[in-house]
């Protein structure tokens, strides 16, 4: 049974989109498959893992269990909309500087949850950071650097200096962030 379709209007990353979708289309499916915004990840697809986290009016929600039609009256921000023409969002820069990723799959959700936290609390405690990110699973279990990155993004500390192993010439953290900035349109 193909089911009914509906015309919906989504406000995503500052742009209006009008879409014809099945009424049961989730916001995540609309973002990924109708708008091509594949930065929001399809992890568990049942609201457990947080990989699909997007911001709705600045609030972190799970797009895999939200109907696209229910997001019509809200301003949606995905990871693609976090950077501005002026450059990376401080959260993105800090995650790059701190190397706060391993496989990277959870990062879009992590960064949006971090952004939502910093929007409401400029200088969060470590406990507040842990709580705000507790709905985002990292299966590489690299939480230490992620928490550090949020503190860096809040301007509460600099990236921890890590001594590179003698044999490897790691680029300075500044140039890593610089390189990331360059590939962002």
């Amino acid at each position: 049974m193909p089911g009914k379709s509906a015309t919906i209007r989504l406000h995503v990353n500052g742009e209006e989109h009008t879409l014809a979708v099945p009424v049961q289309r989730t916001l995540l499916e609309a973002l990924r498959y109708d708008l091509g915004l594949t930065g929001s990840k399809q992890g568990c697809d049942k609201g457990d893992c947080g990989a699909c986290t997007v911001l709705a009016d600045g609030e972190a929600i799970l797009s895999c269990i939200t109907l696209a039609a229910d997001a019509q009256d809200r301003k949606i921000t995905t990871i693609e909309g976090l950077a501005s023409p002026a450059g990376l969002d401080p959260v993105q820069r800090a995650f790059a500087d701190c190397g706060a990723l391993q496989c990277g799959f959870c990062q879009p959700g992590m960064m949006l949850s971090a952004r939502a936290l910093l929007n409401t609390c400029a200088h969060p405690s470590l406990a507040q950071i842990k709580d705000a990110l507790s709905g985002n699973l990292c299966r590489c279990t690299g939480y230490t650097k992620i928490y550090e990155a949020v503190q860096v993004a809040a301007g509460m500390r600099g990236p921890a200096s890590r001594q590179p192993v003698a044999s490897e010439r790691a680029p300075a953290s500044d140039s890593v962030a610089h390189a990331v900035k360059e590939i962002v349109p």
Partner: peptide, 9 residues
């Protein structure tokens, strides 16, 4: 209850 995103929804 659950996690922060789920509590908000």
């Amino acid at each position: 209850v659950a996690g922060p995103q789920l509590r908000r929804m």
